[in-house]
């Protein structure tokens, strides 16, 4: 075999099929949209029962996280995600999936060093950078005097 690494890279990239982007994006839009529609219905339900918008938003988030966790526990969320991709990762249900799935997976190593220690193995970066960004935003707002 007389190929350089660059020549080989061109060859294997040519031989490697790409992900079906258009199909993936369509499914992400349809399923992600469906999850958001469910969220809107839940929110409307709470508002219809007399909650104010802030209370209804919090209750909706709690309900959606519960549903995401439930579907993860039933091994249905991963089956949905196989087609939906970003459509199931981006909504708050995806965050529930990212927390609950390691909890289920690593409980075989014990409740402390297994489940608890690995709980944030996927969602950890989202929390670290999400909270960091909110702190920076808060400080900027404080200094600029928003």
């Amino acid at each position: 075999m007389n190929l350089t690494k660059n020549e080989y890279e061109r060859l294997y990239q040519k031989k490697s099929p790409d992900s079906p982007l258009w199909r993936d994006m369509l499914w992400a839009g349809v399923i992600g949209g469906a999850i958001c529609t469910v969220g809107q219905l839940v929110s409307n339900f709470y508002k219809g029962r007399g909650m104010d918008i802030e209370g209804a938003s919090a209750a909706t988030a709690i309900t959606m996280v519960f549903l995401g966790a439930l579907l993860t526990g039933l091994h249905l969320y991963d089956k949905l995600a196989k087609h939906a991709g970003a459509g199931t990762i981006v909504p708050i249900t995806g965050f529930a999936n990212a927390i609950v799935s390691p909890a289920m997976e690593f409980k075989s190593e014990g409740l402390v060093l297994g489940m608890a220690a690995k709980l944030f193995v996927i969602a950890g970066p989202v929390l670290v950078y999400g909270i960091s960004a909110s702190v920076i935003y808060g400080l900027l707002l404080f200094w600029i005097g928003g």
Partner: peptide, 17 residues
């Protein structure tokens, strides 16, 4: 899966390769 990739119940996608 649990050693090299993600928990089984995690919703991820695999590329065709």
């Amino acid at each position: 899966e649990r050693q090299y990739r993600f928990p089984l119940a995690y919703g991820g996608q695999r590329p065709p390769t």
